[in-house]
Write a protein that binds this DNA or RNA. Structure first.
Length: 889
DNA sequence: TTCCAGACTTGGTCTCATAGTT
DNA sequence: AACTATGAGACCAAGTCTGGAA
């Protein structure tokens, strides 16, 4: 099917004026079109239904868990590529079968909570032949010693567990007799261990028992089909789809844009429209994949029984595994130049991303919006106790500081020093204000608090009016038209001036982030379309480019670090972003086929005579097992944090506290690290022969396009997939959602996604405890009443002194059961709250978990996807919604 | 071979709206 | 109706990775 559409440069104006009514034509009604073109041009992500991820040539049988055994690995090496996996011929067991794991202290993934590799004395006296990460200290997840573990990488808290109810051992690994023990999942064979993702070696917490609460909250009638169109908009087409089963194409017309938010949505409309066709006309092929069920409404597909067995994995074997390393490349510079210079308007049927680094063919947008100019408040700060007159410009900066009086930055000398330096430049050399210590900003601070309070006190109507006014102002900047499709723009607001809030010990914190003006901004837009009007009269853009090899719409230099840039991109829901997201996950899935060989290879290299090789091997091991980040070099003017390649033997962690942790590693790793240590002091790099580009260059030899961060995606996604399949049993939707959350939590722990404990956490816990105690008191009373009732006596008086109703024993028993259930629920809530107080689940969901895993799982288990993804995730993952229910990562 | 500009992704925190509770 | 907990989304800092120039 091909849909033709015409878009004119005028269109944005029309969008501005009259959004919902605008008969804008959207051609990309189906990601398949885009994907197909992408797939043909690049390597081809999968259409799961038929051939799994093509672009792979897998001749060997895949084990049911989707991983190849090492012996199979040799075959898995594409014949067209000279042994990407170097050591496939090596005995897989060679260095490791006898390896004992040793405890060393080694840094863990999050550079902010980095740890030290310092302590060699902590060898475990008895090792088990696992590679489990182990927490030396037993910890108490639910203890009230709130902060005891807050600085530890989350993974160290994995071993602290509650009793688990892991009844389902339906592990996908046949050779893995993994028994989930209360402490560690032990694996008998080194080999299976090798193949086993890190995640599965963590102890799992049990899924909380059947939730007795809230199951009624699930709306059975909710269609499972996400209401998302390919461009991320939400449509109310469920009824449409349901009531007309014959309608197996996404309707192009008749779809109203969602009214669920005041933000206007892109919408589909009839083919062409009288008032949108003028200068630029384009054609986008929408290839209907007849064999695929992309066109079947998801709600219908959801009803399809999950394919028995692992269909996708069996079908995958047919597909080619030959992937050139450029398959994941977006842009070759040469191509880029060519495109830049002449090929802007190539054949318009070339779909974005398929050309030589070309990302789009036409691009229309309205530029960026600037924060309003500063409004002086006239409140005078004090200097040496005396009010000071400040110019608006001086006052603006003073106010930036004043509003931060109640933040932790006030205790940071760097912050104050940097602020004062920059403020002084504005005050001038001879200003009365000379020393920060003599400044009193409280009048401004108090004024600001009052303003905040006023705002809070505004009536709902006033707030609404204000919001609408803002929306009106911003609306035209919110959308871009990319290749004829209206897409949301991400950060169209220029960052307002302020004081730089660098994290950790950033040396530049407190510096003035100056106001960005149009003359600072470079615009990127399609040729032959209107240049966005500069919103500040009398000023003009720095530059206007027409570079279709990049995806940014605008950029300016970061005022804090002028060699860095701030970009304006499309929103995550855009096709452009979705496409690269999909590629990311396809790459991670590809790693699954290589991981066995890679693990064998690095184990072999633990004992290599070549020290660089040895360092690469250990670094890869750490990245794989601990989900470390790569660890680029940092400049002196950046916060001094570390990742894998920049690990030190000894360094300060968060809050400049010397931070140590222990990780159990295999003996050869331990030995190698000891060797790296000789002759170095604590501040030296552990891997002195290594940097991220060397490491990544090495990884690319093992698998096309492989870089350090792919391991994080891989380990996160494979963990989710495995946990979901392992832990999902029957039960109602709520129970299944709990299973999902637990799996999500395991991933967050692996990736060490932390969050600060909320200020009110302890208060909330206290409150919960009090409530539980109160309920327990009530329960006591009820039990006494029951006893009395059984003896035919009247109940005790209530706490208020009033007599209670005389009930029969059954009624008292019912009350007791209800109260007990309430107590149990509260205990569970308390547990969860404590459990997750430092774990952020969102980050992994947004960045590391292949949404197709979640979507397919939802389809298989009849869980509405809305229970898992919120509105913006649904939009972001629109590309994943059509996945076959049998999809496995 | 190294350096670094450039282009993107990842990630934590803050704010605000809203649902739930009292 | 007032209060509070929670989640969504905005915000923007900080990270990764590439490829061309030196």
């Amino acid at each position: 099917m091909a849909v033709e559409a015409f878009v004119t440069p005028k269109m944005m104006n029309e969008i501005d004026d009259d959004d919902d009514e605008m008969p804008l034509v959207f051609k990309r009604s189906n990601t398949a079109s885009k994907q197909n073109s992408l797939n043909s041009a690049t390597k081809k992500p999968s259409s799961q239904k038929h051939d799994g991820p093509s672009g792979k040539h897998i001749s060997e049988m895949r084990s049911p868990n989707g991983q190849n055994s090492i012996s199979q690995k040799g075959k898995a090496v594409p014949s067209t590529k000279p042994s990407p996996v170097k050591s496939t011929s090596a005995s897989p067991k060679a260095p490791t079968t006898t390896a004992k794991s040793s405890l060393i202290q080694t840094p863990v993934q999050n550079s902010k909570t980095s740890t030290s590799v310092a302590d060699h004395s902590k060898r475990a006296s008895q090792h088990n032949p696992t590679t489990s990460i182990k927490n030396e200290k037993p910890s108490e997840p639910c203890s009230d010693s709130e902060d005891s573990e807050d600085d530890k990488p989350l993974s160290f808290r994995l071993t602290t567990g509650l009793p688990r109810g892991n009844s389902n051992n339906a592990d996908r690994k046949p050779n893995n007799s993994s028994v989930v023990s209360p402490s560690f999942q032990k694996v008998k064979h080194e080999d299976s261990d090798d193949e086993m993702p890190l995640s599965s070696r963590f102890q799992m917490k049990s899924v909380a028992g059947p939730s007795t609460s809230k199951s009624s909250g699930y709306d059975d009638n909710k269609p499972m089909a996400p209401k998302i169109q390919q461009n991320g908009s939400t449509v109310k087409d469920n009824q449409l789809k349901r009531s007309s089963p014959a309608l197996n194409k996404r309707p192009l017309g008749d779809i109203k844009s969602s009214s669920q938010s005041s933000i206007k949505r892109p919408k589909l409309s009839e083919g062409s429209s009288p008032n949108v066709s003028k200068n630029v006309s384009m054609k986008v092929e929408l290839k209907a994949d007849d064999e695929d069920d992309d066109n079947i409404p998801i709600s219908q597909r959801l009803k399809k029984p999950a394919a028995s067995g692992n269909k996708s994995s069996s079908t995958k074997q047919k597909v080619s595994k030959v992937v050139s390393s450029s398959s994941f490349k977006k842009t070759s510079k040469k191509a880029k130049k060519g495109v830049k210079d002449s090929k802007y308007s190539k054949s318009s049927t070339v779909s974005p991303g398929s050309g030589e680094g070309q990302k789009w063919t036409t691009l229309i947008h309205n530029g960026v919006i600037f924060p309003p100019p500063y409004k002086p408040h006239g409140v005078k700060m004090l200097y040496k106790g005396q009010p000071v007159n400040l110019t608006p410009e001086q006052e603006e900066v003073a106010t930036m500081y004043a509003v931060m009086l109640d933040t932790d930055y006030m205790s940071k000398d760097d912050f104050k020093k940097n602020f004062m330096n920059d403020w002084k430049k504005i005050l001038g050399r001879n200003h009365v204000i000379q020393r920060l210590e003599d400044c009193d900003f409280t009048p401004i601070y108090e004024w600001h608090q009052k303003e905040k309070e006023k705002k809070k006190q505004m009536s709902t109507e006033e707030k609404k009016a204000l919001k609408e006014e803002k929306l009106k102002l911003e609306e035209k900047y919110m959308w871009a038209v990319v290749d004829g499709v209206k897409e949301k723009v991400g950060n169209f607001r220029v960052e307002p001036p302020g004081l730089f809030r660098g994290r950790g010990d950033h040396p530049k914190m407190g510096k003035l982030k100056k106001r960005i003006r149009p003359r600072d901004i470079t615009i990127n837009i399609g040729k032959n379309v209107p240049i966005p009007e500069c919103p500040i009269p009398g000023e003009s853009w720095k530059e206007v480019r027409h570079d279709n090899t990049v995806t940014w719409l605008a950029y300016w230099h970061d005022p804090i670090n002028p060699k860095e840039f701030k970009y304006v991109f499309l929103a995550p829901s855009s096709s452009l972003k979705g496409l690269s997201d999909k590629e990311k996950y396809e790459k991670a899935r590809l790693l699954k086929d290589y991981i066995g060989g890679i693990r064998t290879a690095y184990k072999k290299d633990f004992t290599s005579k070549d020290i660089t090789k040895r360092q690469i091997a250990v670094a890869t091991y750490l990245i794989d097992k601990l989900a470390l980040r790569a660890g680029n070099e940092k400049d002196d003017d950046e916060a001094d944090t570390v990742g894998c390649c920049t690990l030190k033997f000894d360094f300060l962690g968060k809050d400049s506290i010397r931070y140590q942790n222990s990780v159990e590693v295999e003996a050869p790793v331990f030995k190698a690290i000891q060797q790296f240590r000789t002759g170095k002091d604590g501040t030296d790099d552990l891997f002195d022969k290594l940097d991220t580009s060397k490491l990544n260059a090495h990884l690319k030899e093992l698998m096309p396009g492989l870089t350090a961060k792919v391991f994080r995606t891989y380990n996160a996604s494979i963990t989710l997939d495995e946990q979901l399949s392992k832990q999902t049993r029957g039960g109602d939707v709520m129970e299944k959602v709990v299973v999902y959350q637990h799996a999500n939590k395991e991933v967050a722990i692996i990736c060490n996604h932390q969050r600060t404990v909320s200020k009110s956490h302890s208060a909330q816990m206290t409150k919960l405890n009090e409530k539980i105690e109160e309920l327990k008191g009530i329960l006591d009373g009820l039990e006494k009443d029951l006893a009395l009732a059984k003896k035919g006596k009247p109940p005790l008086k209530g706490p208020d002194g009033k007599p209670k109703k005389n009930l029969n024993p059954e009624a008292w028993e019912r009350k007791i059961a209800q109260t007990t259930a309430r107590i149990e629920k509260m205990e569970r809530d308390k547990e969860t709250k404590e459990d997750l107080k430092t774990v952020a689940l969102g980050t992994s969901k947004i960045n590391y978990l292949d949404p197709r895993i979640s979507v397919a799982w939802c389809k298989r288990h009849e869980v509405p996807i809305e229970k898992i993804f919120n509105k913006s995730l649904l939009a972001k993952f629109a590309w994943a919604m059509d996945v076959d229910p049998s999809f496995r990562f």
